[in-house]
Design a protein around this nucleic acid. Sequence first.
DNA 1: GATGAATGAGAGTTCATTCAT
DNA 2: GATGAATGAACTCTCATTCAT
Lengths: 211, 211, 211, 211
Amino acid sequence: MSQTTARRVRQAAIELFATRGFHGTGIRDLAEAAGLSSATLYHYMGTKEDLLVSIMRTSLERLVTAAKQVTSDVPDPLDRVSRLVALHVLTHASQQLETRVVDGEIRALSDARRSEIIALRDEYEAFWQSAIDDGCSRGSLRPSSRRVARLALLEMCSGISRWYSPDGPFTLDDLACRYVEMALGLLGATDPLPKRELGPVHAVMAAVWGD
Amino acid sequence: MSQTTARRVRQAAIELFATRGFHGTGIRDLAEAAGLSSATLYHYMGTKEDLLVSIMRTSLERLVTAAKQVTSDVPDPLDRVSRLVALHVLTHASQQLETRVVDGEIRALSDARRSEIIALRDEYEAFWQSAIDDGCSRGSLRPSSRRVARLALLEMCSGISRWYSPDGPFTLDDLACRYVEMALGLLGATDPLPKRELGPVHAVMAAVWGD
Amino acid sequence: MSQTTARRVRQAAIELFATRGFHGTGIRDLAEAAGLSSATLYHYMGTKEDLLVSIMRTSLERLVTAAKQVTSDVPDPLDRVSRLVALHVLTHASQQLETRVVDGEIRALSDARRSEIIALRDEYEAFWQSAIDDGCSRGSLRPSSRRVARLALLEMCSGISRWYSPDGPFTLDDLACRYVEMALGLLGATDPLPKRELGPVHAVMAAVWGD
Amino acid sequence: MSQTTARRVRQAAIELFATRGFHGTGIRDLAEAAGLSSATLYHYMGTKEDLLVSIMRTSLERLVTAAKQVTSDVPDPLDRVSRLVALHVLTHASQQLETRVVDGEIRALSDARRSEIIALRDEYEAFWQSAIDDGCSRGSLRPSSRRVARLALLEMCSGISRWYSPDGPFTLDDLACRYVEMALGLLGATDPLPKRELGPVHAVMAAVWGD
DNA sequence: GATGAATGAGAGTTCATTCAT
DNA sequence: GATGAATGAACTCTCATTCAT
C-alpha cells in the first residue's frame, strides 16, 4: 500500500470533510481530489466512516499526548493553562482543517464510533479542567464557574480553526500569545502576567507532529 | 396554508438541521418529523435550501434588530459590549438549535445564497466591532488586537449553543452574567466591573422574539 | 399503491428469480421487467430480500393451508399421500416458477429470514411424514426407510417444476395421476391401487389459490 | 503451476458455488477460501465462468464414462437401471457439493457454454432412457410414461445431494440399495427383486474417480 | 390541503478482471 | 508464482423533487 497515496487520500478527506462536511462530501469527490478512481479509493480505506474515525483518532491522540507532555511536571497551574492554550491555538491554526473535522463532525459518527472519539476528547479536556481547578484552589484564578470557564475557554480557542488564515497580519506565535493573554483575563487571573515562553510547547509539537 | 403546520415544518427543520446537519437530513426525515408526507412538505417550503435560508435569515434579522436596539443610545462601550454579550448568550442558549444551524450550516449554502446570509452576519458583527473599537479608543478596553478580540469573543459566546442544557445548574441570567464577566476579562477591561443590568436586554428580546 | 403494479413487480421477480436466481437478478433487471424505474420499484417493496421472502412466505403458507385441508378428516394414509402428491405436483407444475424460487433460493436468505422460511417448509413437510408414518404403521406402505422415503419422494415431486412444460404431451391431471402411481410404487404400497379422485384436491386448490 | 494449489482453488470453488451459488460467490471469497490473493487466483483459472465450466465438465465426463462402463455388456435392463441408480446415488452423496454445482448452476452459464454442458448431461441421461426403454420393451418395467419416469427418477436420485449427510444413520451402500428398491418400485418393476450386487459399480467408480 | 406514484441522478460500496513489478 | 494497485462497470438503495389526482 503506497504510503504517499494513502497520505493523499487522507489529506483529500481532511480538506473536503473540513470544507463541505462529512455528509456533504461524496466518495467520488474524495476520489477525484485524491486523483484516484472511486474503486481504488477502497484500497486505502475501509468505509467512509472508517476514514473519518481514523482522522479524528489520530488527531485527538496526538493532542492528548502533547497535552500530557506539555503539562507534566509543571507545578504552576497558570503555566499549565498557558501552555494548553498555546498548544491548542497553535494546532488549531496550523492544522486548521483537521481540527475542524474533529470538532465539527462528531455528530456524523454512528453511536459506536462516537463514544470512542468522545472518550478521547474527554481525556484531552481533563487536562484543561485540572489546570483550571488547580488555579482556583491556589487562588490564582477566579472564574465565575470552573466548568463554564473550561467550556467557554475551549470554544474560544477552538474557534481559531474557523477563521484563521496564514495570510493574516499575525504570526502563529503572536496569536498564541494573544490568546494566552485573553485566556488568563477570561479566567480572572489575579497575578500580573509575565510573558510566557512558548519554547517547550514548540518542542512538544515538533516531537508529536513532526516526522 | 395552515400557519401551525408551517411552523411545525420549520421547527422540525431546525431540530434536524441542528442535530444531523443539513446534508445529513433527508427530506423524508423532515416530513416524518413534521408529520407529513414528503410531497406535502413542498406546500410549505420551496427547496430544502430555501428552507435553510429562511431559517437563517429570520434568525439573523432578529439578531441584527435586537443588537441595534440594545446598543442604540448607549454611550458607554463597556455597556454596549456587555449588552451584546448578554443578548448573544441568552439567544444562543434559549434558541440553541436555531443558532447552531445559523452558525454551522453556512457552508451548505450555494454561493448565491451564502453571500446574502454572510452580509447579514457581518451586519450583526459590526455592532460588536464598533463597541470594542470604541472601548479601545476610550481606553476602557485593552485587547491585544481588536479584530482577534472580536473573533475570539464571538466564538466563546456562540459556543454556548453547542453545550448548553436547560438541566444544568445555572439559570440563563446567571450564565449571561458570567459570560459578561469573562468577556470583559478577555477584553482586558480596565475599570472595576459594576454589575450590569439585564433588564433592557430582556425587554428587547421580548419585543423581537415574542409573538 | 396500485394493486396491479404491485402484482407486476411480484410477477417479474418470480420470473427472474426462477430463471436467473436471486443473486443473478439485478434491481435494474427487475425494474425493467416490471416496466418501472429502479427507484419506483422501491414504492412496491422493501429490499430485494424482502421481496424474495414475501414470495416464499405467500407460496409456502398457501401450501401449508392446502396440505392441511386436503388431508384433514382423511383416515386412509394412502389417500393422504396420494392427495399430497397430487397437490404438490399440480402446484409445482402450474406455479412452476414460484415453486422453483421457494425450493431453490433459500440459501440466498440471511440467517434471520431463512429460519422463518424453513419453519414453514418443515410445517408443510410434516404432513408428508405423518401420512407416510401412518401408512407404515398400518402396513399399507413398506418403504425401506420412512425418512429417506419422504426425502426421495419430495425431491421426485418437486423436480417437476424444473422440467415441466405446458406444451408437453400430458395434461396436468395426467401428470398428477402418474406421479401418484410412481409415488405409491416408490413407497412400496402393498394394496392394489384404485384410481384416486383428484376432485377434492382441485377444490382445495381453487379455494386457496383462486381469487 | 503447483498441482496442489490448483486443486485447492477447484475445491474452494466447489464448496462456495455449492453453498452460495455461482452468482453469490465473489472472486474475493474464492481467493480467501483458497488462501490466495484474488490476483493470484488468475494463475490457476481463466474467468470465473471458465472455472465453473471446468468443474461441470470434469464431473459430467466422469459420470458419462462411469455410466458407459457400468452398463456395457449388461443385457438385463433392470440390472442396468439398478447400476445407474447406485452409481448416481453414490456419486451424488459422496461428491455432493460437486454434483450440486453441476445440477444447480447450469443456468448461470452463458449460452455458448451451456450448450456444451447440456450435451454432456444429455449424453449421460441417454443411458437411463435406454435402460428404461429396454425394460419396458421386455415387459419387466411398466412405468406410466417412459419419459416422465426418467425425469422423475433422476430428480429423486439427484435430490440426495441436497440433503445427504455423512453423519446420518445410513451407510452409502445402504442408501444406494434403498434407492434401487425405490427406483424399481417407482418404475413398476414386475419381477421379484433380487438383491443387486454393488461390486461392479464400486469397481468402476474407483477406476473413474480414484487417482 | 394532501398524497401516492413516479423518476433521473447520485449515494456508498463491490464486482470481475488486468497488469506492472 | 505471487501480489499490490488499479479500474470501469455494476451493485443495492436513497436522494430531492414533481405532478396528477
